[in-house]
Design a protein around this nucleic acid. Structure first.
Lengths: 335, 335
DNA sequence: CCAATTTTTGTTAGCGTTAACAGAGACGCC
DNA sequence: GGCGTCTCTGTTAACGCTAACAAAAATTGG
């Protein structure tokens, strides 16, 4: 096996030029006669020649590959982000290499980054939603283009984030506007920046309305933990409105409320976050907040590409505003 | 920027050996004196040396990268598979490069494969659940290790599949065992092998029980299409049991039945397929079929690796049996 | 203890590409 | 018409690694 395909010299011989001219044609160098260019193109097509990325990477020092480090690509958010990233990268002629990681601790992150580095990726996107990830990033070689997504806002690293605070504020305000006296919150794990931001936004909206935020109930993004929180919420007669940190938590809450015979939205209103494709088919259809993953992917890739091209490692940051999606899980409180 | 890291010769100089000895240590060659090995290791550590994958790929003709071609990595199945694949590959020292594809037609698939090929990946895993993908695969260079997942069983290509037929049969039989006189089916898109297999299994179970299968209702995997089918089902008084081709379809059906006031499982029983993490928190908790994505990933990677190592392109195939997960969405029919 | 082996190390030559420079025509200008 | 200036093309030398061979050192057997 391994009948290696034709190389540049083979194309050159067939076209009657030097391999360097072939290289020029391939890289769109301006100073090539039109006629020559066509001959070379024809030879490339005839031989089915495909440039060798490894050789190119060796000589230029970087490949056309972007490394992505993410924790759990099964979760809806990361999966969507990854898909969008891949799509965008493909359009720019880049491949995406995933390095998923079980835990977001120093060691795991560093290992994943190392793996990417040894393949000489052109740049790295780290989906780093927790504290410990930021620390691992600080020790990274400074000369590799890097963008973090949903990372630590307080670190001087190029960063793209969904505006969690604004999203949570909108969700909470929506419940307040419906007439609720206060809003309870089922949060994500508190070491995630996403969670912190969403808690913040929720609290801000409450405070702005002159309300005293009740204690947030911590979940772990899963429907299971949402269910547990929902069981508690269902037993508290004063609860009329709940904002959950994501849609899966909301699903669990919905199910618990249903079991306790508390009707949504008539007795209790619920708002989620993420707008998973199924949210419109929950019982009842879930009002939620939709982050624009495509926009996040586009922004981060653009940021990365500009670093790769310019060579400068700017510490830009960009925030993507999410949108409230109103469905049927919110109603005015009964009086 | 681009302060290139140390190369093998730098390590060699520091350790007082030739670069080739460093190479031997790195590749675990047996004939190196223990003392030398340690000196080299120390030098590697001191310099923070990292081997250059591109150079290695250039000289050996293949990289430590596996290319994965998949359609929609946002769907639960493909996403889980991809994550599992990545995990397994990492354990074997391979990176995974994703090439997702909007449509599974010849052109898109070929383009994705081409991209992988030009990066000289060591092998390719194609998650090819539809007909047209199989055709694109036939024209591939024969010398590149290849494994298809959930692809066309009738093609002579190494293949790993979930046993869709057995899973669907188990689901249908479970409903029959509960006492239902027949079972309706909301299917996936009929150009997916997964769908075909699940339809087959459902039909087999019915036929084996001496029953005449009603016409399957075609969906597209989404909750939205499940909802539409559910609306029809809800209007048909004779329907007491439904098997849906995946859990999201089931969610849509559940919601439609709920809207029409038809209670699950008291009036109608529902079984899904996939066991998404949320299925246990549907209303009611969904009985479903769980494919073992980890096992699929492990099997396909192992198959690929053995091709890479041996150089022979065997046309093996392996089938992973799924498991029925019983929850609360099934009950005997009312009489 | 010397020749024959085996183990360990070094030397050289690519892999396929791009970068840097050099050469060959074509063209315009004084 | 000669000379500088373009435009186009070719030559050579890396990039960092492994494979193949060659040499040196250590080990064995009689």
């Amino acid at each position: 096996m391994a009948v290696h395909g034709p190389a540049m010299t083979d194309v050159a011989r067939l076209a009657g030029v030097s391999h360097q001219t072939v290289s020029r044609v391939l890289n769109g160098h301006p100073n090539v006669r039109e006629q020559t260019r066509l001959r070379v193109r024809a030879a490339i097509a005839e031989l089915g020649y495909r440039p060798n990325g490894a050789a190119r990477a060796l000589v230029t020092g970087r490949s056309q590959v972007i490394g992505v480090v993410a924790q759990n690509t099964t979760l809806y958010g990361p999966a969507s982000l990854l898909a969008a990233l891949e799509q965008t990268a493909a359009e720019e002629g880049f491949a995406v290499s995933v390095g998923s990681v079980r835990n977001l601790d120093h060691r795991s992150i560093s290992a994943a980054v190392e793996r990417h580095l040894s393949h000489r990726v052109a740049g790295i996107v780290v989906i780093a939603p927790v504290e410990s990830a930021g620390e691992a990033l600080e020790r990274l070689p400074k000369d590799v283009p890097l963008v973090t997504v949903d990372g630590d806002p307080s670190r001087p690293v190029p960063l793209v984030t969904v505006d969690q605070v604004a999203g949570a504020r909108a969700a909470t305000q929506h419940l307040l506007d419906a007439g609720h006296r206060t809003v309870w919150h089922v949060s994500g794990p508190t070491d995630w920046f996403d969670s912190v931001g969403r808690i913040d936004g929720w609290r801000q909206a409450l405070l702005a309305a002159g309300l005293d935020p009740p204690p947030p109930m911590p979940g772990d993004w899963s429907a299971a933990s949402g269910y547990r929180c929902g069981q508690m919420l269902a037993r508290m007669p004063e609860v009329t409105a709940v904002f959950t940190a994501n849609d899966h938590l909301a699903l669990g809450v919905l199910r618990a409320l249903h079991e306790f015979g508390r009707r949504v939205p008539h007795e209790i209103s619920v708002v989620g976050f993420d707008d998973v494709p199924e949210a419109a088919y929950f019982i009842p259809p879930l009002t939620t907040v939709r982050p624009d993953f495509d926009a996040v992917a586009r922004a981060s890739l653009q940021m990365l590409l500009s670093q790769i091209e310019s060579g400068t490692g700017g510490a830009l940051r960009q925030t993507i505003a999410p949108a409230l999606v109103v469905r049927e899980s919110v109603a005015p409180p009964r009086r």
